[in-house]
């Protein structure tokens, strides 16, 4: 098991956002985390990259307990996070954004930069442009490549399809499939449940800060509870 979360509680002051959640991610899997707005999906990812330490519970990554590790140490540990809303550095060029992704590395990363440019030729064309001037789709590609610059073994993606046109969404999901093929484990939060479940091996469904249920992705895709709430169908 690559990642194991046990009874994690996260509070924002007086508000409890996660009420003791437990789940796991295996090496090589794509796991999706589904749930309505405010269910606690982003909070879960933020907890997994050290932005919010849980007030109780434990997180174990590759056999090591990482519950209290600080955010800036995660990339060197092998976990990279593509945050909700992409969070590109707007006043840095595309190239500088990619360099930021490799901030924790001490070795030479020119090859990786070239690999990202081969994967996303549009980023190469725009390498001298400011991140803030890119389109939403380009920013998402940049956010994903920036995260890949640290060679993560676990990639956390928070709503990569948010606000993008259907064609671009397909492209982004294609990229996630590629990333998984290259051996990186993926935990992806999505509102776009159908597409996420088609890509994923397993899924967890969150409601109000707890994990309501979980199953293989193929089964969840046909689960009436999912179809009713997330795929906009009524239960017959």
């Amino acid at each position: 098991m690559m990642l194991k979360v046990e009874n994690a509680v996260v509070r924002y002051g007086a508000i409890t956002a996660l009420h003791g959640i437990s789940f796991e991610v295996n090496q090589g899997e794509v796991v999706t985390l589904l749930g309505a707005n405010g269910a606690g999906k982003s909070t879960t990812l933020r907890m997994l990259s050290g932005l919010h330490a849980p007030s109780s519970g434990t997180i174990t990554f590759e056999g090591q307990e990482i519950t209290k590790v600080k955010a800036h140490l995660f990339t060197t540990m092998g976990i990279s996070h593509v945050p909700e809303g992409r969070r590109i550095f707007p006043e840095m060029t595309v190239q500088e954004n990619l360099e930021m992704g490799a901030f924790g590395r001490k070795d030479n990363y020119d090859d990786d930069m070239e690999r990202m440019f081969t994967l996303f030729p549009i980023l190469k064309d725009r390498r001298k442009q400011l991140g803030g001037n890119l389109s939403g789709g380009e920013q998402q590609m940049l956010a994903i490549s920036r995260a890949m610059m640290s060679h993560p073994r676990l990639l956390l993606l928070d709503e990569p399809s948010m606000g993008l046109a259907p064609m671009i969404i397909d492209q982004i999901f294609g990229i996630i499939a590629e990333i998984r093929k290259s051996g990186t484990t993926v935990l992806v939060v999505e509102q776009n449940a159908a597409q996420a479940l088609r890509l994923a091996d397993r899924g967890y469904v969150m409601e109000n800060g707890v994990i309501a249920f979980s199953d293989d992705a193929s089964k969840l895709l046909h689960d009436p509870r999912i179809r009713a709430v997330y795929l906009g169908e009524s239960i017959e």
Partner: peptide, 17 residues
């Protein structure tokens, strides 16, 4: 670059290491 990253978005800068 680290200084500029913190100035633009401190939380994301910490995610970058």
């Amino acid at each position: 670059r680290g200084i500029r990253a913190v100035a633009q978005d401190a939380e994301t800068a910490s995610l970058m290491g």
